[in-house]
Computed example of a mutant assay.
Amino acid sequence: MGWLLILTASFFEVIGAIGLKLYAEQKKIIRLVLYWGGFFVSFVLFYFSLHYLELSIVYPVWVGLGTSGAVFANMFLFNEPKSLPRLLGLVIIIVGVVGLHMTM
Rank of each mutant, 00 (worst) to 15 (best):
A9P: 07
G19K: 10
V14R: 09
W3D: 11
W3S: 00
Y23E: 13
L45S: 01
I93K: 12
H101R: 14
L32N: 06
V63M: 00
G2C: 01
F43C: 08
M104S: 12
A24D: 12
L50I: 04
G2V: 03
P85M: 07
G16C: 06
K82C: 01
F43G: 03
K82M: 10
A73Q: 11
L45R: 07
Y59E: 05
V61H: 02
I92S: 12
G99P: 02
L50R: 05
V41N: 11
F43S: 05
A9W: 09
M1Q: 00
V58M: 06
E13W: 15
L5G: 05
R31A: 12
I29A: 14
T67P: 06
R86Y: 02
L32P: 02
F12G: 04
L22R: 15
L4C: 10
Y23A: 14
V58C: 06
F43T: 09
I57T: 12
V44H: 04
N74R: 14
L100D: 11
M1N: 03
I30V: 11
N74C: 02
L87Q: 12
W62G: 04
S56A: 14
V44C: 09
V95T: 11
P60R: 07
N74W: 10
L90N: 11
G96M: 07
P85A: 07
L32Y: 05
G37T: 06
V61T: 05
T103M: 12
Y47I: 07
L77C: 02
F40K: 06
N74T: 02
F72N: 05
F40G: 08
W3H: 12
G64K: 05
F43A: 05
L87W: 07
S83M: 03
Y59T: 09
I92W: 08
S68P: 11
L4I: 15
T8A: 14
L50W: 01
W62F: 15
M104E: 13
I18N: 12
S42F: 11
V41G: 07
F11R: 00
I57M: 07
K21Y: 08
Y23T: 14
Q26E: 15
L90S: 01
Y47P: 02
L100N: 01
W36P: 09
